[in-house]
Design a protein around this nucleic acid. Sequence first.
DNA 1: ACATTAAGTGATT
DNA 2: AATCACTTAATGT
Length: 210
Amino acid sequence: MLQELEDNYGYLFEKDLLKEIYTSGVIKEVSEGQKLIEIGDYIKFMPLLINGAVKILREDENGDELALYFLERGDTCAMTLTCCMGDTKSEIRAVAETDTRLIMIPVQKMSDWMSSYKSWQNFILQSYQSRMKEILEAIDTIAFLKMDERLLKYLRDKAMVNKEDLLKTTHQNIAYDLHTSRVVVSRLLKKLENENKIKLYRNSIKVIDL
DNA sequence: ACATTAAGTGATT
DNA sequence: AATCACTTAATGT
């Protein structure tokens, strides 16, 4: 596992810090579709992705979901970053997009290392910045109601995190993630197919224009 | 062969 | 862009 850490985080953190992560972190493996964090859960651990991908979702008062962004190798959840100061409930839900390996680090350690490791501090600040940027991007696409662009971005992101241009999903599931109706998704997908950006099959979509 | 589920389409708001 | 109502196509039993 130490080797695994070096392979994935060696370029970010110094040896001492990797050792610390190794001793206080716990490896967790989740399979596709499994829930990692539910809305309202108290956040006790900070996840560090080793491989795989995690989908971050928001939910409204009716229980309707909205996919915000994906986490990949080297990413961590911005939500946990803000709550090292005390017990905070999660505002989001995290679901494994693919089979995923990650390290769970107690939030206590997270703030300890902020003062003792410069590289850790940079990592946290940079993660925070890039998550913030993604959320702003998400707001932009939603606010300006460009559903076709949202859909294409979603498909590309999904293809990227899955490292696979053939997405195994249904129009209904996409509609759920984008918080729209299946009919709209079907029509927009059809349009994208006519523009030769994707190819449609039953239960799967091939993304061509990556 | 029949039921179920996914996807396509026209019309309406 | 959302919803409805309906059709067509694919898949499972």
